[in-house]
Design a protein around this nucleic acid. Structure first.
Lengths: 205, 205, 205, 205
DNA sequence: AATGAATGAGCCTTCATTCAT
DNA sequence: GATGAATGAAGGCTCATTCAT
């Protein structure tokens, strides 16, 4: 939460966040005027600045809250289910479920975040780091316990997993978020485990 | 190429494009002032508008030229190497090589494109379509010729491949483009074929 | 009044209008910079856009207010004085009095309106229509009641009257608005009624 | 003719003038880009500046040539026909005929001249002065020879005549220049001589 | 003389942010 | 705390004019 917020009306704080997500989903970060966010939230322009330092702070707050949601869910899963296969499955499911419930939020997270200033991207990267580290821990544990095949570069695997999840969400958003994103969990999970090759053809090149 | 260009000085056209890539890499699309692009290209502000309709046209042209480079390379590979495994390998290699040669361009393509107006994103999607379709053709052919394992959803596989490539480039950019991106070809290719699982553990969940 | 205005500070709205008249009188429509109008009105540049949609809206508003002033005055006179001769006299007097009080306004109305985009001229023509129609009603009534000579084309008479008024104002402006414009009422009125000819010489050609 | 012109290709000089009239008729003075005038004239942008000092010089030249046409015609008429009634009739006829032949020119003269900088308007006024003086000479002569009624202010009469002619041309332009302007000569001439009143009602107010 | 690519000063407009009420 | 009118810096784009060829 923004340092400023806390002492104030939490309901209004969240109303502004929700409004920001809605407006940014339609217009992107740069297209989202503070005035429109304020109107959407039902507050005056100036009120926004009682809860957020500036426009960038709104975006960062949106991201922080969302990412922490995903991460909290996943952390909980990791703690509860040290079984790497299950943990991976739950992580994908958690990601898809969280974003699948709120397409506007997904749009902001996937599409609009990546713009804006380098400073923001840096902050987003910081926020994602625990997520990435957790993913790597799952992978290492899986290799150690022998449920994943032995010799592969954990970072490359992590990028494949994250990239695949990301692109799956992107495709879902781009087609208008019409189908159930969570339903993609199993096929995506399966594809990540098996790859596209046949065991006996893999060393051909 | 922009319709306006052609009849004029091609060198200047490309100088402006290069300058735009450089400036956008640093400041993003919205942060890139036309005046700075012009100065970087060594021309007057007004000259930019002799070669491009407006600022958006500059960005779209950068993307068009880059994407078409990647696609042309890949199309050529596809025609020459109908062998799906090889084609996939070459496609990844082509993607990494093209972007690996020009980190600024990669930054613009990966990060800054996704901002700006929906109209631009739509255009980018249109430009990427041939790429995606080609990828799917390779996958279908691979299934038919039996070099890929039989039952998997081609679209999910395509998203995994594209997402993995994308995320690999992102990671490379984010760490400062310090290592050789093309060197990622083999491990990424291998990871996509094998997945992370062990053959005998796959049906456990 | 501009749709935007009303809910806001009416004094500021009029201050900007007055400033616009002053600046346009000196520099013409195209020469009048919004920044200079703002400074003249004692507000910030952006404030102008709280009261007017754009620069064109300022000009149109100036014209709308002035023309409606002239028309309101005249309409009132028409209602009150159905006597055509008197109505005509009052109409001329009203026109001269309104503009005579504010030479800058007259300058804008007479000289600078006619430039700018065709769209504006169209709007001005729309605004003038009631005025022209009223003039024609006076003429028709005068013919019917027999105070004007019978067979003349009402449109030609209307153009003579309007053209004469217009040119009288022009001449007054051009010589620096040094004399009392309203004092021209009687001689102009007289001239329009009598023409320049002698009764017995009129059919000579 | 522009001082620059004379030594050069007179055909090209006139081509540019004609082009300027055409373009200004459509877009007005400020809307008429030099580049468009050049293209319409079939010359390069730079060539325009071999024949005219600058854009303003083009407009002034257009006006000078046109006005001098009208004046030359009228001067000739005045010299030839010292009979005031006939001279007035011919003057109106000349004015209507000259402009009636070239609606584009009329549009520029009537509508677009009045904009632009005060400097231009000053020059136009200078050019019109002989015309106005001639009109006054006709009026004075008419009074002296007794073909006009005796006591009226010559300047007011002049303004009525000029204003009526002007407004008649304006109305003709505004309705699309669809009818024969020269045909307005007789009714306008008649109206100016007789006025709108009846002899016995004139002193009522 | 003719060209037209290049120039760059100039201006309207937007919108994040402030602050008096 | 809340308001929203006011601010003013900033930037994309136009177009008259120049000058090397």
């Amino acid at each position: 939460m923004s340092a400023i917020a806390q002492r104030k009306d939490a309901a209004k704080y969240h109303a502004i966040l929700e409004a920001a997500i809605k407006v940014m989903a339609v217009s992107g970060y740069h297209g989202a005027q503070v005035a429109r966010i304020a109107r959407e939230a039902g507050v005056a322009d100036g009120t926004v600045y009682l809860y957020f330092k500036n426009k960038e702070d709104i975006l960062v707050s949106v991201l922080r809250e969302t990412i922490s949601q995903i991460i909290m869910l996943s952390t909980w899963l990791e703690g509860d289910h040290p079984e790497p296969l299950l943990a991976l499955h739950k992580l994908i499911e958690g990601h898809f479920t969280t974003l699948g419930r709120n397409p506007d939020l997904a749009l902001v997270l996937q599409v609009h975040v990546r713009q804006s200033d380098p400073a923001i991207r840096e902050q987003v990267a910081d926020m994602m780091r625990p997520y990435h580290r957790m993913l790597e821990r799952i992978l290492v544990l899986g290799q150690e316990t022998g449920v994943f095949r032995q010799p592969f570069d954990v970072r490359i695997a992590r990028r494949m997993i994250f990239g695949t999840i990301d692109e799956t969400v992107n495709a879902w958003i781009f087609t208008g978020a019409k189908y159930d994103l969570a339903a993609q969990t199993d096929p995506v999970y399966d594809m990540l485990l098996r790859g596209i090759g046949k065991g006996d053809k893999l060393s051909e090149i």
